[in-house]
């Protein structure tokens, strides 16, 4: 475990050094992310302050949905940025070299280099999120604890998604668009899942469990989650993670090292 952490730290340091080589690009990307956040925040604030409710949620609740989405989204990008760079490894055949190394390939291709830009942008996201959470009237500490637990649950689902993307990448060499589709799906949950009608809502919650990843933690925080939904969320997460690892193992068996 300690050896793996050391490798993770080394890869992350190297990744940060690489990012700092392109200072202008880095500053532009960070500025862009903050501008995008500010625009989106302004839009939701402006819209819901005029309409008073969005799918039955108040302005404060809608903002917490949006801020929680931003936190989970930034955290997953921060941790799994290396997945975005997986395609060249497959195309060139360099993935062989990764498989031959005496550590699990996920350390290199899944979490092998945190994104320093998201490490910077996630800090203001956390501050704004915490500020608005403490604006909730009669905030329940049990709900707050469960909210943290379900954020972790969301991180597990995000890990599963990224493993699936890697597996599909091995099978088809198609990664960029798959990642962007995953991002588009998650973006749909930047607002309450209740804005979608059935069967789309159930599809987002249970078939591709983006809803469990993004919406369920916030519903827990507001005390809106039923016990049945609680159990279903945990079971779906477990099944989804199992499926992602199953697909990964299948993909590895199909890998033919075309590029090398």
């Amino acid at each position: 475990m300690i050896r793996n952490l050391k490798i993770f730290w080394l890869l992350s340091t190297l990744s940060a050094k690489t990012a700092f080589q392109h200072r202008v690009g880095m500053i532009s990307f960070i500025s862009g992310k903050i501008v995008r956040f500010a625009f989106y925040f302004f839009f939701i604030y402006f819209l819901v302050s005029k309409t008073r409710f969005l799918a039955g949620y108040s302005l404060l609740q809608t903002l917490i949905f949006f801020l929680s989405f931003n936190f989970i989204d930034a955290l997953t990008q921060l941790l799994f940025r290396e997945v975005y760079r997986f395609r060249p490894l497959i195309i060139s055949g360099e993935f062989d070299g990764v498989l031959l190394k005496p550590y699990h390939p996920f350390i290199r291709i899944l979490i092998g280099g945190i994104d320093i830009m998201d490490t910077i942008t996630i800090i203001p996201y956390i501050f704004v999120l915490v500020y608005y959470i403490f604006q909730i009237p009669h905030l329940n500490s049990a709900n707050l604890l469960l909210y943290g637990g379900f954020l972790l649950n969301g991180l597990v689902i995000a890990t599963g998604f990224h493993i699936i993307i890697l597996a599909v990448g091995i099978l088809t060499t198609e990664i960029d668009n798959i990642i962007m589709i995953y991002r588009d799906f998650t973006k749909m949950l930047s607002l309450p899942v209740d804005i979608y009608k059935e069967p789309l809502r159930s599809f987002l919650l249970f078939v591709i469990p983006i809803g469990i990843m993004m919406a369920v933690p916030v519903k827990v925080l507001f005390g809106l989650l039923t016990f049945n939904m609680f159990i279903i969320s945990v079971i779906v997460t477990f099944l989804f993670m199992f499926f992602s690892l199953f697909l990964w193992n299948k993909a590895l068996k199909k890998y033919q090292s075309w590029g090398s």
Partner: peptide, 17 residues
């Protein structure tokens, strides 16, 4: 496929509003 997502997202947002 991605273009459809964006349209669906904006459509449902405004329908809900």
């Amino acid at each position: 496929f991605r273009n459809i997502f964006n349209l669906v997202f904006i459509y449902y947002l405004w329908t809900s509003i």
